[in-house]
Design a protein around this nucleic acid. Structure first.
Length: 215
DNA sequence: GCGACAG
DNA sequence: ATCTTGTCGC
């Protein structure tokens, strides 16, 4: 059999995807984390996780982790590149976020295992994928009002939603990762919006990952 | 075969 | 993601 490495990883993704649990989140989460990764000129990946309190509207904790990059960027296989650093960073948290927003796709993925879904399974925590660009799927452009969204279908199946987080700005692509469903994912992301394109936990994680690269 | 393609 | 400043427009 001429099955190369990527073909084996595809099978691995399919098997893991079967373990995903998508059901309504119990209650309204208050501690919502944001996870993002940036790359250092040293060939290392910098993972940053921020825990944001939706009620106090402020960052409660920040953790970082560094890991050598051992996998190239290949559309559809991003998790093999970023899960290691993010997993390492999350394990340093003292606080326990009720859900983690991740910069990437959830189940809106060719084999149902985007970065957020993969990370959620590895951690056993609820995760939501919030991507800035679509990877696949059929959808309509959502109205130009904050909170407006349209469903994304893959082979006729609803896998995510395109959400307008702010008027006049490109929408984001939301899909459940693990331990929650699409309605819950959309609800959390909406509640975490503060007037910017990205939900606050992710915006903070992104700002920090960019800033912490420079001495 | 051709184009698309998260970060 | 990363290489990079100013500039146009709401």
């Amino acid at each position: 059999m001429a099955t190369n490495k990527l073909e084996k990883l595809k099978e691995f993704q399919k098997r893991l995807a079967e373990k995903l649990v998508l059901k309504p989140l119990a209650g309204e989460p208050r501690l919502v984390a944001g996870a993002d990764v940036s790359y250092l000129p040293t060939g290392e990946a910098l993972g940053v996780v921020v825990v944001y309190d939706l009620e106090e509207k402020r960052v409660k904790e920040v953790v970082t982790a560094k890991e050598p990059v051992t996998f190239p960027y290949i559309p559809g296989f991003l998790s093999f590149r970023e899960v290691p650093v993010l997993k390492k960073a999350v394990k340093k948290l003292v606080l326990r976020p009720e859900v983690i927003l991740v910069d990437g796709q959830g189940i809106l993925h060719p084999r149902g295992l985007g970065l957020a879904a993969h990370l959620g399974l590895e951690l056993g925590l609820p995760t939501v994928g919030v991507a800035k660009k679509p990877l696949l799927g059929d959808f309509e452009e959502p109205p130009d009002e904050a909170g407006a969204y349209s469903l994304i279908r893959v082979d006729g199946r609803i896998r995510g939603a395109v959400l307008r987080t702010r008027p006049g700005v490109k929408p984001v692509y939301v899909s459940p990762g693990h331990l929650l469903d699409l309605p819950s994912a959309l609800a959390v992301v909406k509640r975490a919006l503060t007037g910017y394109r990205l939900p606050e936990p992710l915006r903070q994680a992104h700002l920090l990952s960019q800033r912490l690269k420079k001495p």
